[in-house]
C-alpha cells in the first residue's frame, strides 16, 4: 500500500468519525460531501481503488460515503459538479 493509500484511509475515517454525531444518514452525506469538496482526484481514485478490499481499514461510515461518491463519479475521480 502506498503513501497516498495510507493517508486516504486515515483521513476518510477521521472525517467520518467527526461527523458521526450527526447520525448515520447525515454523517455519510457529510463525509461524502467533504471528500468531494476537498480531495484531489487521485486521492479519490486511490480511495475508490481500495473499496473492493474488505479489510483495508475503512470505517463503515467512511466506506459507505466513499461508495456513494464513487457511484456519482467517473473512473478518474471526477465529480460532475460543474
Amino acid at each position: 500500500m502506498n503513501e497516498t493509500a495510507h493517508s486516504v484511509i486515515r483521513m476518510a475515517n477521521q472525517i467520518a468519525r467527526n461527523f458521526e454525531i450527526l447520525g448515520k444518514e447525515a454523517a455519510v452525506a457529510a463525509t461524502q460531501d467533504h471528500i468531494a469538496s476537498f480531495w484531489d482526484r487521485r486521492m479519490k481514485a486511490a480511495a475508490f481503488g481500495l473499496l473492493p478490499s474488505a479489510d483495508v481499514g475503512f470505517s463503515p461510515l467512511a466506506r459507505e460515503a466513499l461508495e456513494r461518491l464513487a457511484g456519482e463519479t467517473d473512473g478518474a475521480g471526477h465529480q460532475d459538479a460543474g
Binding site: 502506498n2 503513501e3 497516498t4 495510507h6 484531489d40 482526484r41 486521492m43 475521480g77 471526477h78 465529480q79
Partner: peptide, 11 residues
C-alpha cells in the same frame, strides 16, 4: 476538481 494539499503533494 480540487488539487493536492501540501501533505498530499508529499505523499
Amino acid at each position: 476538481e480540487p488539487g493536492l494539499r501540501i501533505p498530499n503533494m508529499l505523499d
